[in-house]
């Protein structure tokens, strides 16, 4: 295959030009770069390389919780708060991809339409796409573009229904878990494992029956998590986001958490831990993709399938034989 050197060079200069415009605050360039990093299109590593020196300034806010908990509505109200303070906002709103078709309907924008004439608010919708470990990496990269665009606050909103939200919540400096009354017993709140990563616990639609009970459940669930002396203890805040009730208390708690992070190097510590996980995850994905590609290339598995199907060979031995063939030994 002849190397299309000139094409590669022009892709590189195209990316450099886009990043140049991004740094100047060009929204169209930001939007195109988000597509490049989300799709891991040609030049995406070059894009990240050039963007990274311009990142790290934004406060990353993660918002997760079950569908219908009112995350987008809360985000909408928080944007109002921050805009009143003059802060610029980027929102990355992740909605689930249909497992059947691979398509998605992304509707979080509907609740944030009020800001369409405000250049200080940039909303980008993403589909979860269900790719192996890819979602958190793609979301982190889109958030990086928002950061480099110069947004003061980058809000990452995700539906929390599986394991994904744990890694996604791990993307943020401050993570809000939004719960609503009447969504099941207290085990629901604990079992997803999100309680441990939440910095703020929000009980939205708090005018509904069961809000106090949910608050008590969350309180007792938190007693199971050991908090060290001087460590941040997540506050439980009741809101009725649609009416704006409690939203200023949420904004204040976020500010307090941010102040806490800025003391004693907590933020640096948190970001280092996050980067460590991210690099390892990316390395794992790369390795797996490499491995699977080369396994499939050699058609080695097809070869073994006859023996597997006729019960002459067990799957564990087959897997070992397979990786040994490409030089991996335990």
């Amino acid at each position: 295959m002849s190397a299309p050197v000139s094409a590669q060079a022009s892709a590189t200069s195209l990316i450099a030009a886009l990043v140049e415009r991004l740094i100047q605050g060009d929204r169209a360039a930001a939007s195109r770069l988000m597509t490049v990093v989300e799709n891991r299109r040609a030049g995406y590593r070059e894009a990240l390389r050039l963007i990274t020196p311009h990142t790290g300034r934004a406060h990353l806010l993660g918002i997760t919780g079950p569908p219908g908990a009112g995350k987008s509505t809360l985000v909408n109200k928080l944007i109002e708060c921050y805009r009143a303070e003059g802060k610029t906002i980027g929102v990355v709103a992740v909605d689930p991809t249909s497992a059947v078709s691979g398509g998605a309907i992304l509707g979080d924008r509907i609740r944030m339409l009020g800001f369409y004439q405000d250049p200080g608010v940039f909303v980008r919708s993403m589909a979860s796409r269900g790719q192996l470990g890819g979602l958190s990496a793609a979301t982190a990269d889109v958030a990086r573009v928002m950061d480099a665009l110069g947004r003061d606050v980058v809000i990452i909103e995700t539906v929390g229904v599986g394991q994904d939200e744990v890694s996604i919540a791990g993307l943020a400096d401050t993570t809000l878990l939004v719960e609503v009354p009447g969504m099941g017993d207290d085990v629901q709140a604990i079992k997803a494992g999100v309680l441990e990563i939440a910095d703020l616990l929000i009980i939205n639609k708090a005018d509904r029956e069961g809000a106090d009970r949910l608050a008590n459940h969350l309180k007792s669930a938190m007693r199971l998590v050991p908090y060290l002396q001087g460590a941040w203890v997540p506050p439980i805040i009741k809101t009725i986001a649609a009416e704006g009730t409690g939203v200023s208390a949420v904004a204040e708690a976020i500010a307090r958490h941010q102040a806490y992070l800025n003391e004693n190097g907590h933020l640096d510590e948190k970001r280092r831990a996050r980067l460590r996980v991210e690099v390892l995850e990316r390395a794992r994905d790369l390795t797996l993709r490499h491995l699977i590609a080369s396994l499939q290339q050699k058609g080695a598995l097809d070869h073994l399938l006859d023996d597997l199907a006729s019960h002459k060979l067990d799957p564990a031995t087959a897997a070992h034989a397979l990786v040994e063939r490409i030089g991996v030994r335990e």
Partner: peptide, 8 residues
Amino acid sequence: RDAGMEVI
């Protein structure tokens, strides 16, 4: 969406 596209 059912055709595999992402619809905003």
